[in-house]
Amino acid sequence: MNQKEIIELIDNKFGIVKSNIYDEYQLSVVVKKENIFAALALMQLNDFKELSILTAVDWFDRNVFEVVYILFSYTHNQQLILKTEIERDNPEIVSVMKLWEVAETYERDVHEFFGIKFLGNPSLKPFFLHNWLDMPPMRKDFKTQQYSDKVFGKTKEEREK
C-alpha cells in the first residue's frame, strides 16, 4: 500500500484538510478534530500497528494546538503523521487509550506540558515536574527566562558584567 493509496483511503473516508509527502517513507495528513479517532482506528486496522509518539505543537499566533500522532507500519514500511488542530483556550480531545494503551502515558505527558485535556484518560496526574503550580511550561506564552531568574536567581546581568 503506497503513500498515494493511504492518502486516498483517508480522503474519501474523512476528507483531508492537508497532506504532505516528505520522502518515500514519511507522509503527513491533517484531519479534522471530530474524525481523528476514526482515522486512527482505520489506520490501526490497516497495519499501522505502532503509535510511535503522541505530542502537541503550540501555534500561539494562530491560537491553536496541533495534536500530532505518529504511526508506523512494519509491513508498508511507512511512517504516517496524523495531525489535527484544536482551539487553544479550552483544549480538549478524545483519548486514544482504547486503541493504544501506551497513549495513556503520552497523553499524561502532553497534558502536563500543554494543558490539553484528553477525555477518557483516567491518569491525568502531575508527572515529571516537582510540585508545579504554574501554567504548563511548554506553552509559548510561558516565559522560562523570567521563571528561571525568579526561582533560581538572576544570572544574565552577571554574565554581561
Binding site: H130, P137, S148, V151, F152, T155
Partner: peptide, 13 residues
Amino acid sequence: NGGIYYDSYTVIN
C-alpha cells in the same frame, strides 16, 4: 551559572 540550561524551568542556576 546554570550553563546552557540557564533559562530552564527545572535546572538550578
